[in-house]
Design a protein around this nucleic acid. Structure first.
Lengths: 206, 206
DNA sequence: ACGCCTCTTTACTGATCGGTCAAGTAATTT
DNA sequence: AAATTACTTGACCGATCAGTAAAGAGGCGT
């Protein structure tokens, strides 16, 4: 079949990622995805056993894209504090870019999807846990480097702090999506992160 | 019609609240709600012009229930710090109670719903903004009392801190829902709140 | 040239979706 | 007692839902 229609599977994943990010699992149909990806329904079910499985595949792809960036941001050659600073900048820039592209602040696709499907699609929950565990391992490693440099107190519970960081970011992204506004994100993300790290923890000034 | 079927409207709201909390807007149909509330579809559309309007009504009712509790928790007769402490306890207890009742951690119904419908149902977004503004006004008032007692630095941006508090709580509740686990909530909510307030802001110890 | 395998195409299923409609019932107003 | 009002009832609408079936097209190893 040469390559008249290459990457059908990938086109489905890309399209699903975009539509699910903009809207929601419940309000995007398999037909919507097929139409937007220019794929027939039969082909869809050749590649994916169900709509939920495509959603899971799109979560994985989104993570893989993020991973590439995270490997840069959390490069061990950088100061650990700089890594978190760069993370905050990246998140803000990325959200701004997506908001421009899709005319809407979209937040974290995996979190929105998992929240919607909580208690309904076990597979989505499992994929989410996997992704958040992998992300937290970046934070943990940076935190350990901070501890080694004496930047955070000895005996700090690294895993617990890493988890607080991901929870904090989740909250910021969720609210940005709901309010369709990244102003609060841009204002609060970096200082909030720093306060969790125990650095210049003062409350915001007028 | 005497009262063979009283409170049809209220039964619809109560049922919608429960089903939307447990599942999601997209996976709960008008028929589901009608069946569970033992109401005919025609009656549904006598009281509500659309599914979305019922969802909005259920958001408002949930807030009204919360408001009663908030008025106790944020009683001006209490120490402001105690108010936040009681808030954290209340949230944990409430989530535990709901999780028991529905066999699932449910998080914040308004936030989950608003996240799902972001950019699709303007009315839901507006109701969410209204609710979060009202909640933040409780935090602001307590923060002002703290400032008056010199518990937080002069010149602190009260509104910004109040917003950080609600964002923080949102993140904790979202993750609790997604992971169907309130352990992290019980562990992190109070210390996180205190750190935002600038009190014993140390990182968690092992 | 053959069959095999991967993928595409199209038509189709039965269920369910949000929402409408018109007739009916019963208390209240006039 | 008639008209009005508030609500109920259940059938009904066309559209859409996730998923299936079956036939075919094209490349590939033999």
């Amino acid at each position: 079949m040469v390559c008249a229609k290459p990457d059908t599977r990938q086109r489905l994943i890309d399209t699903a990622q975009e539509l699910l990010w903009k809207k929601s699992y419940g309000s995007v149909s398999v037909d919507d995805i097929c139409k937007a990806a220019n794929v027939n329904k039969g082909s869809f079910y050749h590649f994916f056993p169900s709509k939920a499985e495509l959603a899971i595949a799109s979560m994985e792809m989104t993570y893989q894209e993020t991973k590439t960036t995270y490997d840069q941001i959390f490069s061990a050659s950088k100061q650990p504090i700089t890594r978190f600073e760069d993370l905050a900048d990246y998140i803000c820039e990325r959200q701004a870019e997506i908001a421009r592209k899709y005319s809407q602040v979209c937040g974290c696709p995996a979190s929105s999807l998992s929240c919607e499907m909580a208690g309904q699609e076990q597979g989505i929950r499992e994929k989410y846990d996997e992704i958040i565990r992998r992300k937290e391992s970046y934070y943990e490693s940076a935190l350990r480097d901070m501890a080694a440099e004496g930047l955070i107190p000895d005996g700090t519970d690294i895993k617990s702090v890493a988890h607080e960081i991901s929870t904090f970011i989740l909250g910021q992204l969720m609210l940005a999506r709901i309010q369709n506004d990244i102003a609060a994100l841009q204002r609060d993300l970096k200082p909030g992160l720093f306060r969790i790290l125990g650095l210049k923890g003062g409350a915001p000034q007028k």
